[in-house]
Nucleic acid binder design. Sequence first.
RNA 1: GGUCCUGUGGCCGAGUGGUUAGGCUCAGCUCUGCAAAAGCUGCUACUCCAGUUCGAACCUGGACGGGACCUCCA
Length: 487
Amino acid sequence: MQPLFLYNTLTRKKEEFKAISPPFVGMYVCGPTVYADVHLGNCRTFISFDIIYRYLVHLGYKVRYVRNITDAGHLESDADTGEDKISKKAKLQQLEPMEIVQTYTVDFHNVMAQFNALPPSIEPTATGHILEQQEIAQEIINKGLAYEVNGTVYFDVEKFAKDHNYTALTGRKLEELLENTRDLEGQQDKKGRLDFALWIKAKPEHLMQWNSAWGKGFPGWHIECSAMSTKYLGEQFDIHGGGMDLQATHHTNEIAQSIAYCGKQPCNYWLHTNMLTVSGQKMSKSLGNSFLPSELFSGNHPLLDKGYSPMTVRFFMMQTHYRSTLDFSNEALQASEKGFDRLMESHKTLQTLIPSATSSEDIKALETRCYEAMNDDFNTPVLIAVLFDAVRIINSANDKKLSLTQADIELLKKIYQHFIFDVMGLKAVSENSKSMQVLDKVVNIVLDLRNKAKAEKNFPLSDEIRDKLTESGVQVKDSKEGTAWKI
RNA sequence: GGUCCUGUGGCCGAGUGGUUAGGCUCAGCUCUGCAAAAGCUGCUACUCCAGUUCGAACCUGGACGGGACCUCCA
């Protein structure tokens, strides 16, 4: 297994990845709260971890990838007040909470499938693990690090912080956090300002509630991840991921709970993906600059000049490192669309290359550079730069400007398969459909007629055919070997 | 206000103390009946100020700009 380096938020530096029990790897990623259409920023996070998952698998690890669905317990504010997001939506639309959950879970799966993201190994839900969450809350009470007041169970942050580093993940000072936390309503029951709820007493009208030792209620937000990661990956596992916005509160509390529960750091490597911005500003509904994945695909949005295919968007996302902010703009998307097109065209060209007796290029070195890029904290932008070197080599070989042996052509095919399709998860835009096959024949008939016209030097006619094809979205490409075309 | 991150060529976006990132755009050339495609060549950047150094865009300090978190959020 070759050395893989990744940036660990816990230590704030790149570290060599060492699995707890190789070849097995346990990876937990915080999934979506299914109360609304999946947000493009969510997609970026899950696509980033899809690449990480795919690369680990490619390297030969046996990965158990757990990504939860939050379908309860997620309050509108983190002050442990306010309403459950899903309950609220359910009341608003006069639906069962589970209808909301079902609708948006299906939507989420559809979108992820369009982006060609692999499903996780296990996708557990918060509502499916109520007992496990209660058990953890009870155990933390038993350890003296949580307390119950009026049916709600709070985690005692300041008591925990006496023996543990509560702020390890952010590097903040506890005193500063205490000073900066403002007074919020409905928190009278809390002992400490930073305390957070493990279990929340439900009001009678609350739609989703369960029996517990503390009366009817529902779980706090953070505890589901502790419960489900422990259940499926054990008390200690390898990688925990999520968006950077989860780092300060959600993950900090998750670590505290897990340590309080079983006395161990739950996870060795914490990976965080950066935010998505639109023209320099964070994409958010309140700023009015957000669009849905479906709007991005269709182009049906005031901020978008046109639609972009899911694969274009995926490729675009990979041209930025996962720890940098990713800025959406029409110009940037169009640039990616062209680049992605060129990459995919070269894959077709690669299949038709004629081998030479010798090679003028070092393809093995190119493969090594691909691995070096990915081993350096999954650096997909550098990987793509290397792959464009391959594009140039393939096109030049096709133009007979340089030579490749059969072995090198095979190696290039392997590199393409491994890095473009297996690791980056890109795929050619569908070309195998029945109508596509028919179109292929039809266009070739038209091009044959054009070539006849050309042979007769009837250029007005041949140009008219070409221009009309171009108008219809078929690009004609003449070369010495003949005429090719693409959409 | 506090904490942290960041500032790269027309646009997007990597990276390193001294050597070409890459993509897109633009210009020229090759090829072509013309065009497109493809290839080649060119456009050589690193917010500002001071310091460390033989040498800094890359290290340190400061200024200014942008962003994230501190409040639901991937």
